[in-house]
Nucleic acid binder design. Structure first.
Lengths: 265, 265
DNA sequence: CGTACCACG
DNA sequence: CGTGATACG
């Protein structure tokens, strides 16, 4: 059994002030992947940096206060790797991988973009460099009799069911045809990964994992499903349960994203 | 009778959220001089911009969110002037003058400095340009049978009694020998102004008008007296009462400065 | 709208 | 330590 949770915390220091640690203490997962930590380890309190009972590995961004991913594991990982080989994104705080027995788990924070800005170009460069890595990772895992799970904020909604207002967002970053096509490659023959939440919930809208802080997006459930756990075939087959932990109320929210939890047999 | 209050609000928008308007509604003054407004009029709510019963004139800084002085008057001023003729400080949001019958009242925010930095040089340039203006203002007022009152944050403690830790601050901006000597010139033969709070309270420490937000400065009354009302001789003679309105508790504070109120006959 | 940074005080 | 600017999301 392996239970993995992934959540974009939108600033770990802010999240810790609003209930992240209480949430973590009730979290039964074996592995927790965090994105948008937005802090270096030295800026975190000891309790937040290494919660009791967890091993914690961080990959902060070179730019202070930006991005940053982490992985918490109940047992010490066998190996830890930062980045995926693309020089531009080596110190971007966007990819961290840990090896556990039989399985490699990664925390990913794919850049968010905005059409017509350099940030969209950066997002596309990331996507272009990352897909070959995913292919290589899957092959390497298969060759070594291992599985891989890429958790995180992919900043792309794949299909119309993956966001509330898909019509209005056809021209917006996060739901562009080329972004959706790229995710289809990750999930198709080329990548061979499975979106395990969608695999277990094929016929519903959402479940959304992100709601803008602007307006009443959360209250109206005007959300996007952009946080995924993408599993190699052998691992995907073992998926028993997959769910998104939407906060009960706006007041209980400690991030604009919700945790995504998957239980593997 | 003329009652004048002066206070550095340290951001009028923040002050308004913490009790400034409640304080103002209990304020019996005829004129209120504000410093560090840190906003343009358009950024203020109508209620804050023009409180009921007041006329309000603003002199914002060209740099957004910096400095900014204002004067509130119960009756419409006869004239309003921004700046004191020094080109460098014309749009600095540091000086605003209003004419009321028989009296000119000014709101001043003298630059704060830091030894060894360009900001200290700026402070000194301001002082150098401002003293001749004060001399000219006094002469012009006298020639026209008027009085003048310069209220505000002068960012200099004059004597040892004007700050709690004078020994430790001998080398710090705000209590440098040259700054103190400059204030002595304002208050001596050259300027001819009277520090009316000190005139009415000659033998006490303080009363302080500013306490740093750092540490427990307010609770320990580790303050500085840097906010003054400086009056021309005829007006100084009419001073009946002068006091500093220290907030009762840290929780009641809506600025790091306290209002200075003077009643003239 | 919220979390960070920074400059200023 | 707090205000407000800015970048990012």
């Amino acid at each position: 059994m392996l239970t993995v949770t992934s959540v974009n915390v939108n600033g770990l220091r802010a999240a810790a002030k609003k209930g992240y640690l209480e949430w973590l203490s009730g979290c039964a997962a074996d592995v927790v992947c965090l994105q948008e930590v937005r802090a270096e380890e030295a800026q975190l309190t000891e309790e937040v940096r290494r919660p009791a009972g967890w091993h914690a590995r961080y990959a902060p961004a070179a730019a202070r206060g930006r991005a940053g991913v982490a992985v918490l594991t109940r047992r010490e990982p066998d190996a830890v790797r930062v980045g995926f080989g693309a020089p531009e994104f080596e110190d971007a705080g966007r990819y961290l991988e840990v090896d556990l027995p039989g399985t490699t788990v990664a925390s990913l924070y794919l850049p968010s973009g905005e059409v017509g800005t350099p940030r969209q170009d950066e997002k596309e460069r990331f996507m272009e460099a990352f897909l070959p890595y995913l292919v290589k990772l899957r092959a390497a895992a298969a060759g070594g009799g291992r599985e891989a799970l890429i958790c995180g904020d992919w900043n792309i909604a794949h299909r119309e069911a993956d966001l509330k207002n898909w019509r209005a967002n056809r021209g917006n970053s996060g739901f562009l045809p080329e972004e959706r096509a790229w995710l289809s490659r990750v999930l198709g023959e080329e990548g061979g990964y499975t979106d395990v939440v969608r695999a277990l919930h094929p016929d519903q809208d959402g479940p959304y994992t992100w709601w803008s802080y602007r307006g009443r997006a959360f209250d109206n459930d005007t959300g996007w499903r952009i946080d995924y756990q993408m599993a190699t075939p052998g691992l995907a087959e073992r998926c028993l349960k997959a769910e998104v932990e939407r906060a009960a109320s706006h007041a209980e929210r400690w991030s604009d994203h919700a945790p995504v939890t998957v239980v593997f047999d």
